[in-house]
Design a protein around this nucleic acid. Structure first.
Lengths: 344, 344
DNA sequence: CGCGCGTGTGAATACGTATGCTGCGCGCTT
DNA sequence: AAGCGCGCAGCATACGTATTCACACGCGCG
């Protein structure tokens, strides 16, 4: 290739073809198209015209090989969808949109992968130079997740994660404490005095823990007790929310509100309350978290805490790119927002 | 690089490093790791052990450059999400899951992009060798879409599209006619005699057209008239469904059922019917199409026609890969399935 | 009038992998 | 005993781009 061979055998035009047509050398073509200032305006225009005409596009593989970066980010989702892939967590999908958009604006491609579905390590992406950096969403098993994240840090992989800041890696997330507090304050304002909480409150799911902490803050501020018997553990799945309310009812404790750590839980909770003959919001007020699309279609429409996915996705991408470019990056907490509908 | 230089300056191990440690040449390493039978079992084992130990991974860019294929598919979505990316068509998301899974199983990466968000042509993906083939989902403006698809055919790009077979490119889709017919038959069985249809019925959206055609078949088979006054055009957006029902009501025609070309339309229709004091399914039976997640959370839960997204995504990927491998590929029509809930 | 400098371009080469061809040694055929 | 085929591995090189270095030219200045 170093020799001025004419490699344009038959197919795709190369920079050599453009060079020949423009009467310049291949390096000049490369420089011109990358906007190098050492190429004269006249030459550049000529080269660009020819490139356009031949529909020439820089070969991504060759360019990546030479430059050592692939201009691609990888999005890894740590959660098990159903086998047919139908039941993807809505939050993921909401974030995907803004991530894609921001990537596109910044000139990066986006690879997507479900961690459980890839045969090999998640770190493969960076090892094989398939991506310049990683975006981590969700986490199935917290212990496993944490171990993997620490490994990423150890091998200096560039990545950002969405969630609650936990000291490991750069983290972007919404203010779950404030969100939980807002939900609690709203319920208290509405006159609720016994607010149940459904969701993890332990360290396994830092985000859920923070939402619970926010609720507890609101209760204390209002001078209300934080009753552990009003707390039921549940994973973020509709069915688990349903079962959690049944357990709560079985305890025989009175409650006039339920704050659910996620909308999926809230959907299940609403179903269970309906079946038990408790009207929402008449007998029991209900607040969720996430503002998934289905939240506005429930009956009654679900009051919930919205995370700013649009901004979240953009910040994830921008932060990661800054990190790839060598900057030090920091955790970021985005505001959450109470969406008042009819369930409280 | 041809010379036995030791390029392992500092960073990532290369096949030369493995070769040196294993006491063989670089080509032998390459062959061993690709499973070439001309490498003896003993040598291969040794090389694999060393590669594993050094956490060596084949450099994707170099490999792609040499082999001329990138082992990557690109998913292009032709539809405008809201600016913040929050409101992505649920059908897209449902399909994404199974596409990702199948890609992963077949050893392909997946690039995702919204056509409107990429500055350059959609064809860039193949031109720049960023992907070996394209998957096309959705289409905003049919004329524009069709022109682009024809261009893809002209330049021999390998691609598959989801939708109604229309003679251009390989198309995978669900049987929209059968789905529409099933919806119609169900409504007729339930005693409905004046079935309104909301959605495009023209050539602009072939899938919608087919759904309408299916409904018409069912009506004719039952000896019922196909009344054009019972048809209202609407794009697949909640708000448009809402407005369509209002227009329908304004016409003053009686109807005892509405078949919506999509669930999003049906959501809007349900809202409009509720506001107009028509109970569902008491006064008006309602059937949608798509079975989006929100469909089961409406009040009453929406009866709808489900497309097999799980199989659809898998077929899209497998068909595309076959095409990339040089096979001739054919259109495929997947069965649709009526999901009976409470709205009819 | 010679020297240096800035501007624009070409020559050579590196990036890491994959593969066609060559070569070597060994066992087996005739 | 000479030749032949086969199993295995090395040599050289191609893939297409980006960058470093060298160089030619023109111009101003001393």
């Amino acid at each position: 290739m170093a020799r001025p061979t004419r490699p344009s055998a038959g197919d795709r035009p190369t920079s050599f073809d453009i060079a020949e047509l423009a009467g310049v050398s291949q390096p000049t073509v490369s420089r011109a198209l990358r906007g190098d200032k050492t190429v004269s305006e006249r030459t550049r225009m000529r080269i660009e015209a020819i490139a356009q005409q031949l529909n020439y596009k820089v070969d991504r593989a060759a360019s990546s090989l030479r430059r050592g970066e692939v201009k691609t980010l990888a999005l890894l989702f740590f959660e098990d969808p159903l086998p047919d892939g139908s039941n993807i967590n809505p939050f993921f999908l909401a974030m995907l949109g803004s991530i894609l958009k921001t990537c596109s604006q910044r000139g990066y491609d986006l690879l997507t992968s479900f961690q459980r579905w890839s045969a090999d390590w998640h770190v493969d992406y960076e090892d094989a130079r398939r991506a310049d950096g990683l975006i981590l969403l969700g986490y199935g098993d917290w212990e496993d997740y944490r171990a993997r994240v620490e490994q990423l840090v150890a091998q200096r992989t560039r990545f950002v994660r969405w969630g609650a800041p936990s000291g490991v890696g750069t983290t972007i997330g919404c203010d779950n404490v404030a969100g939980g507090r807002a939900a609690g304050e709203h319920l208290i304002e509405r006159g609720c005095r016994s607010i149940a909480y459904i969701g993890e409150a332990s360290h396994h799911y830092p985000e859920f823990r923070d939402r619970y902490a926010g609720l507890a803050q609101a209760l204390r501020t209002a001078g209300l007790p934080v009753d552990p018997r009003l707390h039921v553990d549940a994973l973020s799945v509709e069915q688990k929310g349903y079962e959690a309310v049944q357990r709560l009812l079985a305890r025989g404790i009175t409650f006039d509100a339920v704050f659910c750590a996620s909308d999926l839980i809230a959907l299940g909770a609403m179903r269970a309350l309906n079946e038990a003959g408790r009207s929402v919001p008449g007998d029991v007020a209900l607040v969720g978290f996430d503002d998934i699309p289905a939240a506005s279609h429930t009956h009654p429409p679900l009051t919930t805490v919205a995370q700013d996915y649009g901004r979240g996705g953009a910040e994830l991408v921008d932060t990661l790119i800054r990190q790839i470019e060598g900057e030090a990056t920091h955790d970021l907490l985005l505001p959450s927002r109470l969406v008042v509908r009819a369930s409280a």
